[in-house]
Amino acid sequence: MKLDKFDKQILRTLQQDATVSMAELSNHVGLSHTPCWRRVKRLEKDGFIQRKVTLLNNKKLNLGVSVFIYVSLKNHDETSLNRFEAAVQDIDEIVECHTTSGDRDYLLKVVVESIEEYELLLKSKLTHLPSVDHISSTFALKQVKYTTELPIKG
């Protein structure tokens, strides 16, 4: 499905504020209410809009330590990869998991309260993930940029 300028403007607006009313959204993008509503429903049905969420302030929740972790696995067969990927789903502190190219297999992002909490997580869960060979952790010192908005062109 090809997106036109109205679809893209709807997506940009909803990325900034998913709570905007349909009346405000339609006014903002220059469509009447019903066509705008139909476009939003189509964008949802076609998977462009996955879900609407509330973004939380991690520091207010005392979750101010972000750790980026490269993981290398011992085995690279399909079963080992699937077991690892299933296991990371059960660890709440892992907020992102990406497969990567190069000599490392995965990049994880972990959010915790403290370095001590990360050490406990590392010892009790991360090193016990299936097929883990090597873990390399890097602590974020300061978040320079943060956005949840994708760069929709056009």
Score class of each variant (00 low, 15 high):
S137F: 03
K153D: 11
E24R: 11
Q15E: 14
M1V: 07
S32G: 06
Y118L: 05
H76I: 05
L150Q: 14
V53L: 09
I135A: 02
G64S: 15
G47Q: 08
V132L: 01
L126F: 00
C97T: 05
M22I: 11
K45F: 04
K142N: 10
E119C: 02
S26R: 04
K60G: 01
T54M: 10
I135N: 04
T54W: 05
V112Y: 03
V71K: 12
H134Q: 10
N27V: 01
Q15H: 13
H28V: 11
S80T: 09
G47P: 10
S114N: 07
E44I: 10
E117A: 12
E116M: 05
I94D: 00
R12M: 12
L25K: 02
S26C: 11
L55G: 02
E96I: 09
R51Y: 11
L73R: 05
I10N: 00
L122I: 02
R12A: 10
T148K: 05
K52W: 09
V20T: 07
V144I: 14
R38D: 04
K52Y: 15
G154S: 14
A140T: 12
K74P: 01
L61K: 09
L120E: 09
V95S: 10
K153S: 13
H98R: 14
I10R: 00
K153T: 13
L150H: 13
L141W: 11
K41C: 03
F68Q: 15
K41Q: 15
T54D: 01
G47R: 09
A140E: 11
P151I: 13
A86G: 01
I91W: 04
A87C: 06
I94T: 02
P35Y: 08
V88A: 01
H33N: 07
C97G: 03
V88F: 00
T127P: 00
N82E: 10
T13F: 06
N62H: 15
D92F: 01
P151R: 15
K123W: 06
A86N: 06
K145F: 15
R12W: 07
R39L: 03
T19Y: 09
E78T: 14
H128E: 10
K5R: 13
L120C: 03
T100I: 09
T147K: 08
F84K: 10
D90Y: 06
K145Q: 14
G30M: 06
G30K: 07
E116D: 11
Q143H: 05
K74R: 14
I10F: 00
D7W: 05
V132A: 02
V40E: 03
L61P: 00
A86P: 00
L108H: 04
N75I: 08
K60H: 06
L107C: 05
